[in-house]
Design a protein around this nucleic acid. Structure first.
Length: 218
DNA sequence: ATATATGCGCAATTGTGCTT
DNA sequence: AAGCACAATTGCGCATATAT
């Protein structure tokens, strides 16, 4: 980040100088879900070398995007959290995720899914409406929940005992959320199972939508 | 002009070990 | 255990050269 400047008086270039370094935006993605300790970040980003994580955190701290905070009494642990300035990246990261989701394709063998990934996936695909709903989404061991109320959405890791629909995914839901498969097909294919009706899963798929895969241009 | 090949420097990674 | 730092190695991006 110190040597890497684009020499352009441009907001995009400046943004890339600040958060365009390898891993930086993924660290920010996880911190957007909530403050985390060094080891929590490592757990969510298992492929990041430890010194790169340390370097990025320092760079982001220096840029005023992240702050190091010492937790109150009992734990006394160091947590990293976004500043208000850093949290302004929320809409940016969500927009990037929304754009990138169209090209997700199949889940590759070396790819993992974490709770933070699922939280941001739901937030980025959310379609405001006037429906109320409480969802619990499971993917293997990972459980997150979403509370939808019209235009507002609240997503967080963990279960939701009072959910009115539990969606258990056995494969990525991108085909369902992009409309490539409808709810009935997704259930029949075994990529998803629910404790509710087909209509309820359809409603889920309209609450969280991914644009269709880009067609190759001529 | 555009595509491909080559060599180099630096950043990223790996592995290890220090400090608290 | 958490939170790094450092040395050796690997890999990648970049510039330049060469081919189409």
């Amino acid at each position: 980040m110190t040597t890497k400047t684009y020499g352009q008086y441009c907001g995009v270039a400046r943004a890339l100088e600040l958060v365009g370094e390898r891993w930086a935006l993924l660290i920010i993605r996880d911190l957007l879900v909530g403050p985390k300790r060094y080891t929590d970040l490592r757990a969510g980003l298992p492929k990041i070398p430890t010194n790169v994580l340390a370097t990025r955190l320092k760079e982001l701290e220096r840029a005023g995007i992240v702050v190091r905070r010492i937790q109150p009494r009992p734990s006394g642990a160091i947590v990293y959290e976004l500043t208000e300035y850093g949290a302004d990246l929320d809409e940016v990261v969500l927009a990037m995720g929304r754009w990138g989701a169209r090209s997700l394709g199949e889940l590759r063998p070396d790819e993992i899914i974490t709770p933070d990934i699922l939280v941001m996936a739901l937030r980025s695909t959310f379609q405001p409406g006037n429906r109320k709903a409480k969802y619990e989404l499971r993917f293997g061991e990972i459980v997150v929940h979403a509370v939808v109320d019209g235009d507002s959405l609240e997503v967080a890791p963990g279960p939701l005992p009072k959910a009115d629909l539990v969606v258990e995914a056995f494969a990525p839901l991108s085909p369902l959320l992009s409309g490539e498969l409808d709810a009935k097909q997704a259930l029949a294919n075994g990529i998803v199972r629910t404790d509710g009706s087909i209509a309820a899963l359809t409603r889920f798929a309209t609450h969280f939508h991914i644009a269709p895969h880009p067609a190759p241009e001529r």
